[in-house]
């Protein structure tokens, strides 16, 4: 992945007598491989929503991105990014069983998915039917997440990994945005850990985004995310070693990891991260 970045900065197109299509073809092949390994790496908004709920924090609709912005997204890039944002919101709504508000988000997601030609993977009719009854929440959660996995897979197979990466970036940003909002009134160390450890996830995400930075519109997203990354650079993560313990209870095997990752982040750094995330999200969701 770094080879691609260095090559593009050297501007091969101008300096070597190789058809540009050939250079670009190679880049796309490498990107596909990179996208495949990285997207499976990005953690799910489901986990963030579950953490927030487990802390006893009540649901707050004010954390969600307004669906009325959806009509303003005119490029496939903005639509893909917003699709990711609203998917994280859907995960948050589902985790709190807010099936009443889900329909609005489902129809917005469907509209955006259609705009980037992956609407066929989003079974809106079934999801809408499931959302009508809170007893169906498990099926709703499964079909929502599975639909996103299928959209992601389809985009990558059709060499549209750039859109897939923006969906992932949007979902990540919205997930961390909700986390920093909750952390403003809650000092639980698991929240601080969750924010700090995003340094690892963001490093992966940046590698993915940078691989598409040759596109000028896309470069703007890279630049925005770079601002967040610069704040996370201050966070320190150390590791402790330990041997895992395995227990078996009622036929179920559970492995308890004894290695540990420890996040070192100051209140000032957290505030800085929080402010930057809010500013970047505000700019990107209003596009």
């Amino acid at each position: 992945m770094y080879v691609i970045y260095i090559n593009s900065s050297l501007n091969i197109k101008d300096n070597l007598n190789v058809p540009y299509e050939e250079i670009n073809k190679g880049v796309v092949d490498v990107e596909e491989e990179a996208v495949k390994s990285i997207t499976e790496n990005i953690s799910s908004p489901v986990e963030i929503a579950a953490l927030i709920k487990s802390l006893g924090v009540p649901f707050n609709k004010g954390f969600l991105a307004p669906t009325e912005y959806a009509d303003n997204y005119s490029t496939n890039y903005a639509q893909a990014f917003a699709l990711g944002v609203f998917s994280a919101d859907l995960g948050y709504l589902n985790m709190y069983n807010k099936t009443g508000s889900v329909i609005d988000y489902l129809s917005t997601i469907k509209k955006l998915a259609d705009a980037i030609n992956v609407g066929q993977y989003f079974d809106f009719a079934t999801l809408k039917r499931l959302a009508a009854n809170s007893a169906n929440i498990d099926s709703l959660k499964y079909i929502s997440v599975h639909s996103f996995n299928q959209m992601d897979q389809s985009l990558r197979q059709r060499k549209r990994g750039n859109l897939s990466s923006l969906i992932i970036a949007g979902a990540w940003l919205e997930g961390i945005y909700i986390t920093v909002q909750v952390a403003k009134n809650n000092t639980d160390s698991r929240l601080t850990d969750k924010i700090g450890e995003q340094k690892i996830i963001l490093a992966d995400l940046m590698t993915l985004l940078i691989s598409y930075a040759k596109d000028p519109i896309f470069r703007n997203y890279v630049s925005e995310f770079n601002q967040i990354k610069s704040k996370f650079d201050m966070v320190q993560i150390t590791f402790e070693q330990g041997e895992p313990i395995t227990i078996e209870e009622n036929g179920m095997l559970t492995v308890i990891q004894k290695d540990k990752s420890i996040v070192h982040v100051t209140t000032e750094q957290l505030n800085d991260i929080s402010k930057t995330i809010e500013a970047v999200r505000e700019r990107l969701i209003r596009k």
Binding site: I200, I201, P244, K260
Partner: peptide, 27 residues
């Protein structure tokens, strides 16, 4: 490190599901 295996080679037992309690963020 190897953390989880669904097959115990010494007993021949296989497990359909295994839980993993993660304490270290990473790949």
């Amino acid at each position: 490190k190897l953390y989880v295996t669904s097959y115990n080679a010494s007993t021949g037992q296989t497990y359909q599901s295994v839980n993993f309690q993660c304490q270290k963020t990473g790949a």
